[in-house]
Amino acid sequence: MGGLTSAGGRLPPSFTSLYRLFLRTSAVSVLGHRPAFRQLRILWRPCFESAAQVLHRVQRTSGDQERERLQRWYNVWEARMDNTLSLLSVSARSRGLAHRATRNLQSVMRARSAGGVQKQKWNPQLSPSSEHYKPITIVRGTRAGNRLDKIKQSAQVEENAWNALGEAITMAEGRDGITLGRLRNR
């Protein structure tokens, strides 16, 4: 949790205990499969970071109204995380809907991290100013230009699919009072 404490002081022990409990529960929910656990941790990490920021703001805020508003937000978040821990716990004990949902969330994260444009890998034998690292100019109408158009179309389809999935996740979170994690922008 190291990065969360440095932003504005120490976090309450109840928060760090909740994070550790979440880590243990999510590891058990994927039956100790380390790559799956890593994907779930990446998925839920932004939720804990935003809650940590709210706690830091509660500690720094002097206005009673603002502090009360932030505390209400945190209480709702904590209740949602309790429900999320219940979902992960059921996922660990049964192979029903909760387990399939957890498995699908992990699969979505794996697919998202596998997709995208390949980056140019560093080669220690080449100088930093080598032609290998310079961007390639692509002319439209050529074979490479047509491939680039197909890649852009594919990226648009992928973005539309993620938007639809995001709406479905938001509706499920609102209905059941859980948190299914947050995707960070690449």
Score class of each variant (00 low, 15 high):
M1S: 07
G2W: 02
G2D: 10
G3K: 04
G3N: 07
T5A: 10
S6Q: 14
G8V: 04
G9L: 00
R10H: 14
L11F: 11
P12W: 00
P13H: 00
T16S: 07
T16L: 08
S17Q: 10
S17T: 14
L21F: 02
T25Q: 08
S26R: 08
V30C: 06
H33W: 08
R34C: 05
R38I: 09
Q39A: 12
Q39F: 05
L40H: 03
R41K: 08
I42M: 01
W44H: 14
P46Q: 07
F48R: 05
E49A: 11
V54S: 12
V54E: 06
L55N: 00
H56E: 02
R57F: 02
R57S: 10
R60M: 09
T61P: 02
T61F: 00
G63F: 04
D64S: 12
E66H: 11
E68N: 09
W73Q: 11
W77L: 09
E78K: 13
R80E: 15
M81T: 09
D82C: 15
N83H: 15
L85C: 09
S86K: 11
L88D: 00
S91V: 00
S91Q: 00
R93C: 06
R93K: 12
R95I: 01
G96W: 07
R100I: 04
A101P: 04
R103I: 01
N104L: 09
N104S: 09
Q106E: 13
Q106D: 00
S107R: 14
R110Y: 02
A111G: 12
A111S: 09
K119D: 07
Q120L: 09
P124M: 03
P124T: 05
Q125N: 12
L126R: 11
S127M: 01
S127A: 12
Y133H: 08
Y133P: 11
T137V: 03
A144F: 02
D149L: 15
K152N: 14
S154V: 00
V157M: 11
V157K: 14
W162Y: 15
A164Q: 08
L165C: 09
A168H: 15
M171C: 08
E173N: 07
R175K: 14
D176F: 15
I178G: 07
L180F: 04
L180Y: 03
L180S: 03
R182T: 10
N185E: 10
R186Y: 12
